[in-house]
Design a protein around this nucleic acid. Structure first.
Lengths: 192, 192
DNA sequence: TACAAAAGTGCAATGACTACACTTTTGAAG
DNA sequence: CTTCAAAAGTGTAGTCATTGCACTTTTGTA
């Protein structure tokens, strides 16, 4: 679509260097044992520049965000005919989880986040940001008012479900059971 | 039960002074516009002492914690015969919310927390800590393995429901609808 | 009364983050 | 090709929460 000028390209490149440096160092020595200074040095930029690109130390690890939200909304909006919303969300999460599973850093990355309280909290905050968007998509789909409580609730529960699932050994089964619960509750509510 | 010696009493008193000073200042000027130094000064203690009593600035606002957890577990364990677990939790939350509603600082306090991202996040983290305890209580009650996924899920969803409910104008109705969803999903699952 | 543990203090340091004033790069207009 | 304002980058110095340390004071108890 939009051609990027050299300027934009260089900017993105700087950003990428920083993110790469951060990921390497964090994976090697842990989030708390690496300072921003060191990351900036390795990316060959000043600390000031680093913070011009990323709003916080935690954010260095979570880059792609806008895409996730539209994917989430899309999963509800464009689901196969006849499929329930909880089902569609479950499929979406399972697909997303297994989609990246081949990347060699996926495992270590997950472990890093799980083992660092700060990062868990941050990830969760970022994740929950999508609640409103998802809630609206659901409400629109079923023809409820945009701020309908049950739609907001389903959105929240679904997003949380992902977090619970990730903490489990058998993610497939966990997803099945948790979304089963939502599925039944949601269906019963829809009838009323 | 246990009589407190003068030492313990003085310690608690110091702690209370600090918490009081913090609450006053935060309510008056907002969380981010008050420094720990100022709080310590008002409570007439050193900053070092302040941090010997509280692990962080945020924790100054959230004191009573162990009680909440046992109350939560108790709500499940000692619920009236024939009442479902989601129902019991709903009742518990509604009761807890209205129980403090008469306190004059309750409203402003809630508003302070809602309006300060840091505090929202902190409160949520503290709150979710009870997930495991609640999940175990539920599992025990229905005779499932302690780490059963559906029990953990219900616990998580119920705790999150409280958060969603607090963000709503009509909390009574919101509670009704959200726990209705959990109720139906849970009931359907239990039969299987 | 004496003494060890507990409570409190002040100081200096760390580490994330910001404000500021500055230099360098670069896209685009003339 | 020159020019110039915006954008990208830099270094310095500061703020603020939080911690480690070595120290004094208080207090329960033997």
């Amino acid at each position: 679509m939009t051609e990027l000028g050299r300027r934009e390209r260089k900017k993105l490149q700087t950003r990428q260097s920083i993110a790469d440096a951060a990921l390497e160092l964090f994976l090697a020595r842990g989030f708390d044992d690496v300072g921003v200074k060191e990351i900036a040095d390795r990316a060959d930029v000043s600390v000031t520049t680093l913070f011009k690109h990323f709003p916080s130390k935690e954010s260095l690890l979570f880059d792609e965000d806008a895409e996730m939200e539209s994917a989430l909304v899309g999963a509800v909006r464009d689901r196969p005919a006849g499929q329930s919303i909880p089902q569609a969300l479950k499929d979406h999460f399972v697909r997303a989880a297994t989609g990246h599973a081949d990347h060699p850093l996926f495992g270590p990355f997950i472990r890093l986040v799980e083992d660092t309280p700060t990062l868990r909290a941050y990830q969760r905050t970022m994740w929950i940001r999508h609640e409103t968007a998802l809630a609206h998509a659901i409400a629109e789909d079923v023809g409820a008012p945009l701020d309908d409580v049950r739609c907001a609730g389903l959105a929240r529960f679904a997003l949380e479900a992902r977090d619970v699932i990730f903490g489990r050994a058998d993610r497939e089964k966990a997803a099945e059971e948790l979304f089963g619960l939502l599925e039944h509750g949601w269906a019963a509510d829809q009838k009323a």
